[in-house]
C-alpha cells in the first residue's frame, strides 16, 4: 500500500447544537479529494486522528432467580419520527470518563444502579464512512432502585425482556443497531458460558 494521503485543511460547513458538518480537503497521491463528514466534536487539522469517546451505550440486565431480564427502553427518536426500542445511551459530559458516563446514563434513563460492569467492545466508530463518532459499549448488571430523571424532550418507557426471548425480540422490532447486536452477543456468550466453553 503506497498511497500518499494527507489532510490539507478542514473546512467548517455548518455548526449545529449537537453536531457539526465539515469538509476535509485531502491530497491523495497529489490529487485533491474532498470528503464531507459530521462530527460531535470541533474538528481541526490537528485533532482529526485523536483518540476520543463521544458516547456510551449500556446493555443493562437484571437477575431474578434463575432468569435474566434485559432492560430495554422505548424512546421517541426525533430523527426517526417514531418510537423505537433501544438501550440506554448518551454523550460524555465535559470532564467525565466513559465508565462514569455509563453509570450516569443507567441512573438517569432507567433509574438503576450498576452492580457489575464490563466492556462489551473496546471503543469503536459508529459509522466511519459518515462520521468520526466513537462509542464505548458495556454489559452492566443492574438493580432497579429509583426514578428516572429525564430531560424535557426525552420520552422513555422501560421494557423488560427475558433473555430466553431476546433473539426473537430483536429480530422483530425496529431498534438501534447496538441494541440488536449487543443482545445477540450477550445471548450467545451466555449460552456458551452455560455449555462450559468459555
Amino acid at each position: 500500500m503506497n498511497n500518499n494521503i494527507k489532510l490539507k485543511s478542514v473546512e467548517t460547513v455548518q455548526k449545529f447544537d449537537r453536531i457539526n458538518v465539515y469538509t476535509y480537503h485531502f491530497s491523495v497521491n497529489s490529487r485533491p479529494l474532498d470528503y464531507n463528514l459530521v462530527s460531535r466534536r470541533k474538528m481541526n487539522k490537528k485533532n482529526s486522528t485523536e483518540k476520543h469517546i463521544d458516547a456510551t451505550v449500556i446493555f443493562p440486565y437484571i437477575k431474578k432467580g434463575k432468569d435474566t431480564f434485559i432492560v430495554f427502553i422505548r424512546q421517541f427518536r426525533f430523527p426517526i419520527n417514531d418510537y423505537i426500542y433501544d438501550l440506554p445511551a448518551g454523550r460524555l459530559e465535559p470532564g467525565e470518563d466513559a465508565l462514569e458516563c455509563a453509570k450516569r446514563e443507567v441512573a438517569e434513563e432507567i433509574g438503576a444502579r450498576v452492580l457489575k460492569i464490563e466492556p462489551a467492545t473496546s471503543p469503536a466508530y459508529t459509522s466511519p464512512g459518515l462520521t468520526n463518532e466513537c462509542i464505548a459499549t458495556y454489559f452492566a448488571q443492574v438493580e432497579m432502585v429509583g426514578q428516572q430523571s429525564l430531560e424535557e424532550y426525552e420520552v422513555i418507557d422501560i421494557e423488560l425482556v427475558n433473555l430466553k426471548d431476546i433473539n426473537k425480540f430483536v429480530d422483530t422490532h425496529t431498534m438501534g443497531m447496538t441494541g440488536k447486536m449487543l443482545s445477540k452477543m450477550f445471548y450467545y456468550q451466555q449460552l456458551l458460558n452455560k455449555k462450559g466453553k468459555i
Binding site: 427518536r77 459508529t126 459509522s127 459518515l130 430483536v170 431498534m175
Partner: peptide, 17 residues
C-alpha cells in the same frame, strides 16, 4: 442475516443498516 434493519446512531442519524 445477522440482524434485521436497525439504526446505526438514532440520536442524530436516520441511517438504517
Amino acid at each position: 442475516p445477522c440482524t434485521t434493519l436497525s439504526y446505526v446512531s438514532p440520536g442524530c442519524f436516520n441511517e438504517g443498516t
